[in-house]
Simulated scan of single mutants.
Amino acid sequence: MTHHRSRVCYFTIDCDDLDRAVEFWSAALDATEEEVSKASRQVYRRLLLPDSEIRILLQRTDDAKTSKERMHLDLETDDVEAEVRRLEKLGATRYDHQKERGFDFWVLRDPWGNEFCVLQTEYPALLARRRPWPEETPEVRGEV
Rank of each mutant, 00 (worst) to 15 (best):
L75F: 05
E76C: 05
D96S: 09
E88Q: 15
E88N: 07
R131F: 02
V144L: 14
I54F: 04
Q42K: 09
E69L: 08
L126V: 14
N114F: 01
D96Y: 13
S67I: 06
Q59V: 02
L126S: 09
S26E: 06
D51R: 04
R94H: 03
R60I: 03
M71R: 11
T121R: 01
L87W: 00
D79Q: 01
L58V: 12
R101G: 00
N114H: 13
E143M: 05
L75I: 15
R101W: 14
A92V: 04
Q59P: 01
H3R: 07
V22L: 05
E100H: 08
E100A: 09
Y44W: 10
R85Q: 13
E136R: 10
R5P: 00
F11L: 09
E53Q: 13
R46N: 09
L87S: 12
V43F: 04
Y44E: 06
Y95W: 06
L57K: 12
V84W: 00
P132K: 08
E115C: 08
E81M: 05
A125Q: 14
R141M: 01
R131Q: 15
T12L: 03
P124M: 08
P134W: 14
R55F: 15
S52W: 09
E135P: 01
V8K: 00
A128L: 06
R41V: 02
H97C: 00
A82C: 03
D16H: 14
E136I: 14
R101H: 15
F103C: 02
E34H: 01
L49A: 05
C117Y: 03
E83D: 10
D16I: 00
I13H: 02
T12N: 12
Y123A: 03
R46D: 11
C9W: 05
E23W: 05
S26W: 07
F11T: 12
S52Y: 01
F116Q: 06
V22C: 02
V118K: 06
E139L: 05
G102E: 08
T137N: 01
L75V: 15
V118D: 02
W112H: 07
T32K: 04
T12E: 15
A125D: 14
E81W: 11
M71H: 12
V43Y: 09
S37N: 10
A28F: 04
H72Q: 13
E23R: 11
G91L: 03
L47A: 10
E139A: 15
D110T: 10
E115Q: 14
E76L: 02
A82G: 12
R20H: 06
R7E: 15
C15H: 06
T32M: 02
K99N: 12
E115I: 11
P50T: 03
G91N: 08
H4Q: 08
V80N: 01
L119Y: 14
L90N: 12
L58S: 11
S26P: 07
D104C: 08
W133A: 14
P134Y: 12
W133M: 13
R41T: 13
A27S: 15
S37M: 04
T77E: 09
L18H: 03
F103R: 11
E136L: 10
R7K: 12
V8W: 11
P111N: 08
V118G: 12
E88C: 15
P132M: 02
R60C: 04
E35F: 00
T137F: 06
A39F: 08
E139G: 02
D63G: 00
Q98V: 15
S6M: 11
A31R: 07
S37E: 11
C117M: 01
E81K: 13
R86Y: 09
R70N: 07
P134C: 06
D62E: 14
